[in-house]
Design a binder for these strands. Structure first.
Lengths: 186, 186
DNA sequence: GTCTATAGACAGATAGAC
DNA sequence: GTCTATCTGTCTATAGAC
């Protein structure tokens, strides 16, 4: 792992704990074991750390849902693959996902605009999949926005909860989550 | 509305936008129309603003769920009343709820300990209601923690989405949300 | 109850030695 | 690539006049 990767990884953990504004470059440097000035040989600014972490993840989500959307499978199978992708990323990058969810408002300029564009694209793709499912009678005739919101709320919070899941293996987690989200609990 | 109430209300809106650390007392004072030093005639510190907003809401949630838990009604009806309370608070105090969800880690000392205690109590009460529902065959035999997590994820994100709900009246929102969360979407 | 002025700490970032 | 030293600005909070 390069020093730059180390900076990004440690930054994600510390920003998750202290918030973007609450983390100082001195604290970050101390956690890595160098002086603050040395960080600037690897990254141009504090803002660039946040932008790189968030935009990289946002691009991953966007390309995945576009890849799923054009497949010739049922809407329910599309939703299943989207859920699985959220589980996989939540397992492997929980800290970076926390930044995507909670620190994006500290992005500036073009980075903030790009993030908003990708977020809107993601929600629009998911909205279309839900509407297709309703048209095919795969999904109930509920408010699309309510279904979209409920799904995304649970998926975007997976990173908070996934480390406390205890003994549930990843595959079983995906199956039960799929059942809870699509078939309900009662 | 007293000046102190005005400070709390404006603080909630600005902290939601900029984060607790990102909001300066100068910015807060300017939004209210006074100088920063004048704020300290109404509140003892910046930290006290955050603590008062968050702990007040946490006490509201805790007392409500304890009130519901001891009722002689079905587990499904208990869940319905809990969902309705989240909707009501999300409609009336969206900014303060955002702080409860996203800024609690900036609490310090006894305030932070009290918050964590109340949050654990809330989750434990909800866990018991879910387990009762499973024992009564009102709820499916799914992982309790997964059901708890999914429910709370959606309920705690209501404040983000509720202002975009458009034309859905509050009563209809409660009914559809109840259906989505308990009966599923497919 | 609001103001001006300021104390004292800490922020992001840069210059230049090694 | 890391360091020391430092610039320049902002932060919370207080003192004391009005």
């Amino acid at each position: 792992m390069t020093r730059k990767d180390e900076i990004l990884q440690v930054s994600a953990r510390l920003i998750r704990e202290k918030g973007y504004v609450g983390l100082s470059m001195r604290d970050l440097a101390k956690a890595i074991g160098v002086k603050a000035a040395s960080l600037y040989n690897h990254i141009p600014s504090k803002q660039a750390i946040l932008a790189e972490i968030i935009l990289h993840l946002a691009e991953d989500f966007t390309s995945q849902i576009q890849h799923v959307a054009i497949k010739s499978i049922s809407s329910l199978d599309k939703l299943k693959q989207i859920i699985e992708h959220h589980v996989d990323l939540s397992l492997h990058h929980p800290n970076k996902l926390a930044l995507l969810n909670n620190e994006w408002m500290h992005l500036e300029g073009q980075s903030l605009a790009d993030f908003k564009t990708m977020r809107n694209q993601y929600e629009e793709q998911l909205r279309q999949i839900i509407n297709q499912g309703k048209a095919n009678n795969e999904l109930k005739a509920l408010h699309t926005e309510l279904v979209l919101f409920s799904l995304l709320s649970t998926l975007r919070n997976l990173n908070v909860w996934i480390k406390k899941r205890g003994s549930i293996p990843a595959e079983q987690l995906k199956n039960e989550l799929h059942q809870v989200l699509l078939n309900g609990i009662s």
